[in-house]
C-alpha cells in the first residue's frame, strides 16, 4: 500500500488483548466511510499488513505479556508520531495482569501440566514461540504513551472523538459520562 499524500496514516495492533477494542473501533459503524476519506491504514489486523511503515498515529490495544508484544510496541513507538493506548489492558494490565499474582511457572503448569483434560501434558518450548514475560505490564511501562483512552473497551464514540481531534490537530477531551474504566 502506497502512502497517499494528505492522508493521515494510522497503524493499530492488539498485544495481550481480546480484540474487543478493535471491535469497538469498528463500532463507529458508517462513520468508517468518513474515516477512510481522511486516513489510510498501515499495519493493522484490518489490513493484515505485517510490517509497520511511517505513521502519524499508532493505536495500541492490550497489555505487554511476551517478547513479541515488546518488539511490536517498540516498533510502533519508533514509527508513529503519536501513540494512543486504548483499553484497560493497555492502560493498567487489565485481565492479563491478574496472572501477576502467580509465578510464571505456576501459570504454565496450571495451563499445560495440571490443567483439566490434557492429553499429553507439556510446557511449549518451541524456539519459534515468543518468550512469555514474568509479569504482564501496561504499555506505559515499555514506551512513552501520548494519549490514553480508558474503558473495557472504550466506546466507539470515545474512539471517534479522540481520532477526529487528533486528525484535526486538536487535543482530545472527554465529557464526564464518556470516561469509564469498565
Amino acid at each position: 500500500m502506497n502512502n497517499t499524500p494528505g492522508k493521515i496514516r494510522i497503524a493499530t495492533t492488539s498485544l495481550a488483548g481480546c480484540f474487543g477494542c478493535h471491535m469497538s473501533i469498528l463500532d463507529i459503524d458508517e462513520k468508517i466511510i468518513d474515516l477512510v476519506e481522511l486516513v489510510e491504514f498501515d499495519r493493522t489486523p484490518l489490513t493484515d499488513i505485517k510490517e509497520i511503515g511511517e505513521c502519524d498515529i499508532g493505536i495500541i490495544e492490550g497489555a505487554v505479556a511476551n517478547s513479541e508484544n515488546v518488539e511490536v510496541l517498540q516498533e510502533f513507538r519508533k514509527h508513529c508520531k503519536t501513540v494512543v493506548a486504548i483499553g484497560a489492558c493497555a492502560l493498567n494490565g487489565g485481565i492479563p495482569a491478574m496472572r501477576n499474582h502467580y509465578s510464571l511457572e505456576e501459570c504454565l503448569k496450571e495451563s499445560y501440566v495440571d490443567g483439566m483434560g490434557l492429553d499429553k501434558p507439556l510446557i511449549p518450548s518451541d524456539p519459534e514461540l515468543p518468550m512469555i514475560l514474568n509479569e504482564v505490564h501496561p504499555v506505559q511501562d515499555v514506551v512513552k504513551v501520548d494519549y490514553v483512552l480508558p474503558g473495557c473497551p472504550p466506546t466507539a464514540d470515545m474512539i471517534w472523538d479522540a481520532l477526529t481531534a487528533l486528525i484535526e490537530g486538536r487535543e482530545p477531551s472527554f465529557s464526564l459520562d464518556e470516561v469509564r474504566y469498565d
Binding site: N92, A97, H101, E135, P150, F174, L176, V179, R180
Partner: peptide
C-alpha cells in the same frame, strides 16, 4: 473509588503499578 476518579478526570494512573499479592 471508580466514580470519584472518573469525576476528577483521571483517565489512567501515570505511576507504576505495584500489583500486590
Amino acid at each position: 473509588l471508580q466514580s470519584v476518579a472518573e469525576f476528577c478526570g483521571m483517565l489512567s494512573p501515570t505511576f507504576s503499578f505495584q500489583y500486590p499479592n
